[in-house]
Each structure stands twice: as C-alpha cells, then as structure tokens.
Simulated assay, not measured.
Amino acid sequence: MPALQLNTPEGELEVRYTAADNPDAPMALILHPHPEHGGTMNNKVVYTLYQIFAEQGFHVARFNFRGVGQSTGHFDFGEGELRDGIYVLKWMREQFPKTSEIWISGFSFGSWVALQLLKKNPDIQQFMCAAPPVNVYDFSFMLPMDRAGLFVQGTTDTIVNPDSTKELAEKISRMSDTVVECHMIDGADHFFTGKLDQLTDITTHYIQSKRGTS
C-alpha cells in the first residue's frame, strides 16, 4: 500500500493507494468523514470501502483532507475539501491513464463531498456512499442525477436520519433517468459498529452487479 505526499496548488495531501495488476482496471477514490469530528482516511468504514474496491480489482486511493494527518492546511467547510478531491482525482487519472471506468465513494461528510465531485465530473460513472448526511447538509445538487449509485445506511444511526437517506434515494430515482439503490442495515449505527461484514457484502454485491462479475 504505497503512500505519498501529493503536491497541490494549495499544499500537500497525504495519499495511500493500491494499484491493480491490470493497468486497464477501473479506479475508485474514497473520501473520509468530517475532519473536525475525528475523521481520517484510516477510519474503519473508509478502510473497509478501500479494501472492498481493492479486492474487486480496482486501482483505489484514499487520502486525508487538508489539515488532517500529514496533509497541510486547515478545514475549509467543504469547499477546500472538494478541491482536495479534485486534485487527487486528477493525480489518479495521470497515474492510471488506461482506466476508463471511475467510481467515487465516501462515508458521512465524505459522501457529501464525493457526490459534489461526481456532479462536477461526468466521467465518474458510479458512486457508493455510506451514511450520507442528508439531514445535515444540502443534497439538492443531486437532482436530477444521470448516474446510478448506492447508499448504505444503518437503521439505528443517531447522526444521519435513516428515513432521510431513503427518501433522497427514492426522490432521485423518481426524478431522474437512473436508479439510486438504498440498502438499510438493521441495527447498524453511524459507524456500522459490528456490521462491517454486512456493509462489505452489500457493497461487493453492488460492484459485481454493475460490472458483470461474480
């Protein structure tokens, strides 16, 4: 799992990545939860998502937003963090030039940033988000949506309202020419404590179903 300090116009970002054996493999970028609430790229949910994509043969990267770990700078309320994602995505495209399939993924706050990155990049084909904070941030930019994706949400999450996540997925699917699936994990809290195996199974199945693999 190589690590590097990525130089950007706004400072350095701490990045970890895994390169697939196949240079033509798809690639995925994983974004972590809120920096001011202890979120880092080493969060258990983020690391689980990272491992899932790596095991499915993706080039995959995760990184620390500005001001976290070895990344320089300061928290920027989502705007700077979105630019961080843009810089890392640009680096991934340069690192894996033969890739033609791009996925974006995030957990909690990272989902909000990831989905904004998706909307700004039409070449990102798919998304997978865990516990998107629909009741905390404005997700209206998602409407309409022209790409399919997956939400995974715990039913006992006390930070993200499970009904809000389900309602957003249904609204996007109703108003758009695509489908956003929403899988609820019964008894899972915000951090999927004791439920990471179920998160893994659901996400793996979704990736395989979209890529025609098993």
Results as ranks from 00 to 15, higher is better:
4 L>A: 08
4 L>F: 14
5 Q>L: 15
6 L>P: 01
7 N>I: 08
8 T>D: 02
14 E>W: 04
14 E>Y: 12
16 R>L: 09
18 T>C: 00
19 A>C: 00
20 A>I: 00
24 D>A: 02
24 D>H: 08
25 A>W: 01
26 P>F: 00
27 M>T: 01
28 A>Q: 01
31 L>E: 01
32 H>S: 04
33 P>W: 06
33 P>A: 08
35 P>W: 11
35 P>F: 11
41 M>V: 09
43 N>D: 13
43 N>H: 07
43 N>G: 01
44 K>D: 07
47 Y>A: 03
49 L>W: 01
51 Q>R: 15
53 F>C: 05
59 H>Y: 08
60 V>E: 06
61 A>E: 08
62 R>W: 01
62 R>A: 03
63 F>I: 11
65 F>K: 07
65 F>W: 11
67 G>W: 08
72 T>M: 10
74 H>V: 10
76 D>G: 05
77 F>V: 03
78 G>W: 07
79 E>Y: 12
82 L>S: 09
82 L>G: 07
82 L>Q: 13
83 R>A: 13
83 R>G: 00
83 R>E: 15
84 D>A: 05
87 Y>R: 02
87 Y>S: 07
88 V>F: 11
93 R>A: 10
95 Q>N: 06
96 F>V: 06
96 F>E: 02
97 P>N: 04
100 S>R: 05
102 I>A: 12
102 I>S: 05
103 W>I: 04
103 W>D: 00
103 W>H: 06
109 F>C: 03
112 W>C: 07
116 Q>P: 03
116 Q>D: 04
117 L>T: 03
123 D>E: 14
130 A>Y: 07
133 P>C: 14
134 V>N: 05
136 V>H: 13
137 Y>E: 14
140 S>P: 04
141 F>S: 09
142 M>N: 13
144 P>L: 05
146 D>C: 07
146 D>K: 13
149 G>R: 08
150 L>D: 02
150 L>W: 10
153 Q>E: 10
157 D>E: 08
160 V>W: 02
160 V>I: 10
161 N>W: 02
162 P>S: 05
162 P>Y: 02
168 L>P: 00
172 I>E: 02
176 S>Q: 09
181 E>Q: 15
184 M>F: 11
203 T>H: 10
203 T>S: 15
208 Q>A: 08
208 Q>R: 15
211 R>C: 03
213 T>I: 14
213 T>Q: 09
214 S>K: 14
214 S>D: 09
